[in-house]
């Protein structure tokens, strides 16, 4: 594929990515009527995070340890930066020191 073709494919990608993003903003359906909408954040955050911690082949131990610490810090302190910092720092230490 030459570079012009790649550019055309990217334009196509841009179009099909934008559509699902923009259409819900113009729908006439009152989405709030659907009860399940309120569960969307919890469901999405969980389905986004979990595959980073485990796969069908097993658990990523170092990331899981960092994640458990993140969950505890989030629950106890409810502070975003502290949570994110602790998680990344712990993961860095574990990988640096090759704990697992």
């Amino acid at each position: 594929m030459d570079q012009i073709e790649v550019t055309l494919v990217i334009l196509g990608m841009a179009a099909v990515t934008y559509l699902p993003r923009v259409l819900p903003f113009f729908t006439k359906i009152d989405v709030q009527r659907y009860i399940f909408l309120k569960f969307i954040p919890v469901a999405i955050f969980s389905s986004l995070a979990m595959p980073d911690l485990m796969g069908v082949e097993g658990v990523h131990v170092s990331r899981m340890v960092a994640a458990v610490i993140a969950v505890v810090v989030a629950y106890k302190t409810r502070r975003m930066f502290l949570t994110v910092f602790m998680a990344v720092f712990i993961l860095y230490l574990i990988e640096k020191l090759e704990v697992f």
Binding site: F45, A49, D52, A67, A70, V88
Partner: peptide
């Protein structure tokens, strides 16, 4: 992992 931690926090 910042992003993973962000999702977990939220």
């Amino acid at each position: 992992f910042t992003l993973t931690a962000l999702f977990l926090y939220l």
